[in-house]
Design a protein around this nucleic acid. Structure first.
Lengths: 254, 254
DNA sequence: GTGCCCGTATTAGTCGGACAAATAGACGTG
DNA sequence: CACGTCTATTTGTCCGACTAATACGGGCAC
């Protein structure tokens, strides 16, 4: 089952992006298998067929396949042992906060529980981060935030540039907290931010212009007001959560 | 440089623990190299010597070495490209929230910035998590929390069992939020919890009995009081942060 | 019948050695 | 001096053999 298209090289490099590395095979396999796992195609507890057969089916060498498995194991998705084989781990052991795992989760329709959880996490993290950022941000970071918001206004949230600027704004806030673990959450938050706009686009009519809220957060951070920043960010994320929740219950089924 | 002791098999399985798998070589290499990187032995931007030489120096096959590198790359610690070699990534790209990376960071003396950041993160996450847990916890989870606290009292925080029960208590709270991404943070929080006791032990006199604070959190969660739970947890973590901060400034130098 | 021990088949793990592909940097050319 | 090309180096991929761990089952003692 799962014919596993033989893309091999080529076809994977997303257009318009710089393309760091031209898709090494082990990376492609890890990606495809990773997506298959997080999307439930292989269920927790399930055992993958043995390395030799599977690698033959994928038409790659056993070495390349094994390296792919090592990647997945490093992210907590699988675990392999002699004699037993390679088994899909229970979801609780997946490193959901890993940028790749998160990206893979969003490549197919993510589970509502994940989206809901992600927004709750945003609601916890981002207001606190905004408050810290208001106390610690550097002038250079303020500049980058301002430019990000201006780019958002210029391009709009329908364009890829606009969405990227939105994520850049939120990421810079996390960076301004000067807290390494918080910065590591940037990709997680970014995934949440990305999906805010996705859900907004689904229900065509955009419910409210997000820019005033963003500027309010920016002003508070720039002027060094932690509590104002916290309040403004809370409002921003709550609005996003509200919109998303409505969009979600509109589409319980795909 | 870095003679890289030839432990090979044996010696790595920590006594007293079940030992899932008897230390596969690629795992050992990944562990040793990972620790060397997070401890600054290899600095960001630095390029590791080529695969053939390095694997020979470690006395392992190139395949095993490559699998180790794949693991490190999956966790954002390194990136390898043809011709350039394998380069240590800037710290901002490390997946600090990855359980392994975090554990490696704490195997040698972690940087004060990391410890401080971790406690700040606890102060953000845990009160909010406690509030959610108070609303969503199952009876079974309440039982597990109670048993964890009783185990803490029985064994004391000087014993390994007591510390494990402490982490179990905090992990169960996260589990009770019914939020997958929050649950993924359990190992991160656990690392912070573990180091609270480490710092307490350093300054021999324990500054204050932590049990009453823990029970207050438990009572609030068990009785379904979100705001009481949030307040109690805030107090608990602030106390821990305070103690740790003092211990840290006592020992700026190792 | 029951429980334990040990053998064996199966699977991942390790090895080494060859060849392919990408590419940074040197080199030549206009 | 700019720009394309060539080359050496490094990772990437493949293959096939052997090793090591271990789940399972069959036989043995009780």
């Amino acid at each position: 089952m799962a014919p596993e298209k033989k893309t091999r090289t080529g076809g994977d490099r997303r257009i318009g992006k710089p393309v760091r590395s031209p898709a090494r095979i082990h990376g492609v396999i890890a990606h495809d298998l990773g997506v298959a796992i997080v999307s439930g195609q292989y269920k927790p507890g399930e055992i993958l067929q043995n390395e030799i057969d599977f690698s033959e089916r994928l038409e790659v060498s056993r070495s390349a396949y094994r390296e792919a498995i090592r990647i997945l194991a490093a992210k907590g998705l699988v675990e392999s042992r002699p004699k037993t084989g390679t088994r899909v781990n229970p979801e609780a052991r997946w490193n959901l906060l890993d940028p790749d795992v998160l990206a893979w989760s969003f490549e197919t329709e993510p589970s509502p529980a994940l989206v809901k959880g992600l927004f709750e996490l945003r609601l916890i993290i981002e207001p606190a981060a905004a408050a810290l950022a208001a106390q610690r941000r550097s002038p250079e970071q303020v500049t980058r935030m301002r430019e990000a918001l201006m780019a958002m206004e210029r391009h709009g949230l329908n364009t890829e540039e606009g969405k990227g600027a939105d994520r850049e704004f939120h990421a810079t806030i996390l960076e301004a907290t000067d807290n390494p673990p918080l910065l590591s959450l940037a990709s997680t938050i970014g995934a949440g931010v990305r999906w805010t706009t996705v859900y907004k686009e689904r229900k065509k009519e955009l419910p409210r212009d997000p820019m005033p809220d963003h500027w309010k957060v920016f002003d508070a951070i720039a002027s060094g007001g932690p509590e104002a920043a916290r309040a403004a960010m809370t409002e921003l994320v709550e609005m996003a959560l509200h919109d998303t929740a409505r969009a979600l219950q509109q589409r319980p089924r795909a």
